[in-house]
Simulated scan of single mutants.
Amino acid sequence: MFADKKPDPRHMANPEDVSREDIVAAFRSAMIGHFRSHVPGTNINEATLIASDYLNHFHELVMLLEAIGSEPKEFADDLLSWRPLTYEEHFSGSGFRDKNLAIAAYRRAPQRIRARFDEAVARLHGEALTLVGEVAAQLGKGNGRLAKICERAAQRLRVLIEEANAIANGETLPERADSEAAGDVGGQAAIDALFGNR
C-alpha cells in the first residue's frame, strides 16, 4: 500500500541517497508549514517568505500626504516626524503578534527575491524622504500648490508600493536593466514620465 509513496528525505535511513535539492525542498516545506501554523491571517507569502504587511508603513505616509493636502495644520507634525523604517524595525516596533516569526521568515527569504524587495524598499525610502522634504518646504506658504504637490507625491509612492508589493507576493516583474538596478536615472525617468517632471 505504501510502496509507491516517495520517502520523506527527513526520515530516510541513508542520508547519502538524498539529494541536496530534496533536503532544501523538505526544509522549505517544513518552514512554510511552521510559519503558516504560527502566523494565521498574516500576509507572509509562502514562496517569498516576505510579509506585505511591511508596506503599511508606506501606505500610512500616502494617507498622511492625502490628509495634508486638505488639512495641513492638522497633520503637518505627523508628516514631519515620519521616518523610514527597515523591515525588521517595522515589525520589531509593532504590536504584530508573531513579529519574531515574520522577521525570521524574511531572513530566510530566497536571496534573489529578497534582494529585489530590498532594492524596491530602498527606492521607496529615498523617494519618500524626497517627497516629504518637498511637501515640508511648501507648508505654511499658503500659495495653493500644497494640495497638488501632495497629490503627485501620493501617486508616485503608490507606484513604488505596488512594485514592492508585487515582489513580496511573488508576482513576476520584468527584469530591470543594470543601470536601473544601480539606482541610475533610468528607473526614475520612467516614473517621472508617468507623472510629469517635479
Results as ranks from 00 to 15, higher is better:
2 F>V: 14
3 A>W: 12
8 D>K: 03
10 R>P: 10
21 E>I: 10
22 D>W: 01
28 R>M: 09
30 A>N: 07
37 S>Y: 05
39 V>W: 01
39 V>R: 02
40 P>C: 04
40 P>Y: 09
43 N>V: 06
43 N>K: 11
46 E>N: 08
50 I>K: 15
52 S>L: 12
55 L>Q: 12
56 N>D: 15
57 H>A: 05
61 L>Y: 03
62 V>K: 03
62 V>M: 03
63 M>C: 05
65 L>A: 14
68 I>N: 06
68 I>T: 12
71 E>P: 00
72 P>A: 02
73 K>M: 07
77 D>G: 01
80 L>H: 00
81 S>I: 02
85 L>V: 09
92 S>D: 15
94 S>C: 06
97 R>W: 06
98 D>T: 05
102 A>I: 05
106 Y>T: 13
106 Y>R: 14
111 Q>Y: 08
112 R>A: 11
112 R>T: 12
112 R>Q: 10
113 I>T: 15
115 A>N: 05
117 F>R: 07
117 F>W: 10
122 A>G: 07
123 R>A: 05
126 G>M: 09
126 G>F: 03
127 E>S: 08
129 L>F: 02
130 T>N: 03
134 E>P: 04
139 L>G: 07
140 G>L: 00
143 N>E: 13
146 L>F: 00
146 L>S: 01
149 I>V: 13
149 I>Q: 05
149 I>P: 00
150 C>F: 03
151 E>H: 09
151 E>I: 02
154 A>Q: 03
155 Q>C: 09
157 L>H: 05
157 L>T: 08
159 V>P: 05
160 L>Q: 13
161 I>Q: 10
162 E>M: 08
166 A>K: 03
166 A>Q: 02
168 A>E: 09
169 N>T: 11
171 E>N: 11
172 T>G: 07
178 D>H: 04
181 A>D: 04
182 A>Q: 12
185 V>Q: 05
186 G>I: 08
188 Q>F: 13
189 A>I: 14
193 A>Y: 15
194 L>V: 15
194 L>M: 15
195 F>A: 06
196 G>L: 08
197 N>F: 12
